[in-house]
């Protein structure tokens, strides 16, 4: 038998297998493990299912995204998204502990997000990663799971509390912000006349507000939500949110099955019938509720 014939027979068998799989899925008796065997043999989806564990690259130093709680457990919105994937992969989902036991977290610096994907050290990176066309040349992004923005954190002891008061203060208002090439413009889009104070970390920008050296900290919207929820008598949200950026999970390029599966799982968790984990995390970490899902025309 020539090689070609062998291959043709194998392809025929594969086709047959696919037919069987479709039939079985229709009968709803096929488990994910078997279906994965039908995906491309090199897909990460198959590797993850065979391993029985999802390896997630993330950080541990940024609340409310990925941080250790008072008990030393990793938690946050990114961790919740990892849990959504683990529940989808291994059919758990009722119990957070059970889901998390199926995840191996690789703690990494934000600078290691792309290298750890390309070096194959992680299956997926879920670490408040901003989608950009430049990064999308290097990694495959999932659908966004949050739209980050910029907000102005003010102090309940401060002179100016709302966005209007800050605007009216004009040049007298001081805004602290994380040092960046376009930090001046970033502040100016929210407070056109305010004095800008650039600091080396977001934590120090907040520290400046605490110590009264600035009137507003120009920081991530999610951080404002988190701080106001935790310290309602200390911090205020000035009420003005602007500048959007998309947060997505990132994977290795060239693996459509894996990417498609992650997207499907996130769609179901954000818009479908399994929104419990996402909604609970959204409320816990951002002190807000996702909009009500309306049946009928798909909005996703």
């Amino acid at each position: 038998m020539s090689d070609n014939e062998t291959r043709a027979r194998r392809d025929f068998l594969k086709l047959g297998g696919l037919g069987l799989a479709v039939g079985a899925a229709a009968a709803a008796t096929l488990d994910a493990q078997k279906a994965a065997a039908q995906s491309a043999p090199t897909s990460q989806l198959r590797t993850v299912l065979n391993r029985g564990k999802l390896i997630v690259g993330t950080g541990s130093t940024n609340a409310p995204w990925h941080f250790e709680n008072d008990k030393g457990e990793l938690t946050g919105m990114d961790i919740a998204v990892a849990r959504i994937l683990a529940a989808g992969l291994f059919g758990a989902g009722r119990d957070a502990k059970e889901d998390l036991s199926k995840i191996e977290f690789v703690k990494q610096d934000p600078a290691s997000r792309i290298p750890n994907i390309t070096a194959g050290k992680v299956d997926i990176v879920i670490q408040f990663m901003t989608v950009s066309p430049a990064r999308a040349q290097l990694v495959a992004f999932s659908r966004p799971y949050y739209v980050e923005g910029v907000a102005l954190l003010t102090s309940s002891k401060g002179k100016y509390k709302t966005h209007k008061e800050l605007i009216d203060a004009g040049k007298n208002a001081k805004a602290s912000v994380l040092q960046n090439v376009d930090a001046d413009q970033l502040v100016a889009r929210g407070l056109p006349q305010a004095q800008v104070m650039q600091l080396d970390t977001q934590a120090n920008a907040i520290q400046a507000l605490d110590s009264g050296r600035s009137d507003a900290a120009v920081i991530d919207l999610s951080t404002v939500g988190w701080l106001v929820k935790r310290n309602p008598d200390k911090y205020l949200d000035s009420g003005f949110h602007y500048d959007t950026q998309l947060y997505s999970a990132a994977m290795r390029q060239g693996d459509p099955d894996w990417l498609q599966w992650v997207n499907t799982c996130l769609n179901v968790a954000m818009h479908g019938h399994q929104t419990e984990i996402y909604d609970a995390a959204f409320e816990e970490f951002f002190a807000a509720k996702p909009p009500r899902r309306v049946p009928g025309f798909p909005t996703i």
């Binding site: 950080g59 541990s60 130093t61 940024n62 609340a63 941080f67 250790e68 709680n69 008072d70 970390t201 977001q202 934590a203 120090n204 907040i206 520290q207 951080t223 701080l227």
Partner: peptide
């Protein structure tokens, strides 16, 4: 990690 939780460096 502690700073990431408390924002108090």
């Amino acid at each position: 990690q502690v700073i990431g939780r408390t924002y108090d460096p």
